[in-house]
């Protein structure tokens, strides 16, 4: 099975990065194995669990099934680039509520929640169910994630007022 490798210029967390990989390699493995950004996690490889969620041009995508070739000309944001200083309203809220247990799924949870919060600044419980039910947590942090998203919405609102 001959495969070819191409060289791509990608924008990852606001920096340009050149990589040479096979075009069908999922972005997940490019991030983890080639670039060394291990904050994005492998959970299933089949878009069932959401652990690998990243932003591709602002949309939450499952990086385990999204090939490198689809990222050309687009902006990739990972958990490491969610906020410059780790001070996204969601990161504040997650810490306040002590959301994580093992923490392994939380990068994906945060990346999904970030898109929800941007699109819908005051999500209801139903909105949270709709946006977050693709992200599995086996430790069972769901109630705290819900609480933290509501808290983050409040933080975002008060920051908007201040600025």
């Amino acid at each position: 099975m001959p495969t070819i490798e191409n060289t791509y210029s990608l924008y990852i967390n606001r920096k340009e990065t050149r990589v040479t990989v096979s075009p069908d390699m999922p972005i997940l493995w490019l991030l983890r194995d080639v670039i060394g950004l291990t904050g994005t996690k492998f959970g299933c490889g089949m878009a069932q669990c959401g652990a690998c969620t990243i932003h591709l041009d602002g949309e939450a995508v499952r990086s385990c099934v999204t090939s490198v070739s689809r990222a050309v000309g687009k902006e990739i944001i990972t958990i490491e680039g969610l906020s410059p200083e780790g001070d996204h309203p969601l990161q504040h809220a997650w810490a306040e509520v002590n959301v994580p247990q093992c923490g392994y799924c939380q990068a994906g949870q945060l990346m999904s929640a970030a898109v929800l919060l941007r699109e819908n600044p005051e999500p209801t419980d139903q909105d949270i169910d709709d946006a977050m039910s693709g992200n599995i947590c086996r430790c069972g942090t769901y109630l705290r994630i819900r609480k933290a998203i509501h808290l983050a919405a409040a933080i975002q609102k008060s920051r908007a007022k201040q600025s």
């Binding site: 950004l37 958990i79 997650w94 002590n98």
Partner: peptide, 12 residues
């Protein structure tokens, strides 16, 4: 506060 929380939340 969870002692490892900030590195979890930033992917480190």
């Amino acid at each position: 506060p969870k002692t490892n929380i900030s590195s979890i939340l930033t992917g480190r």
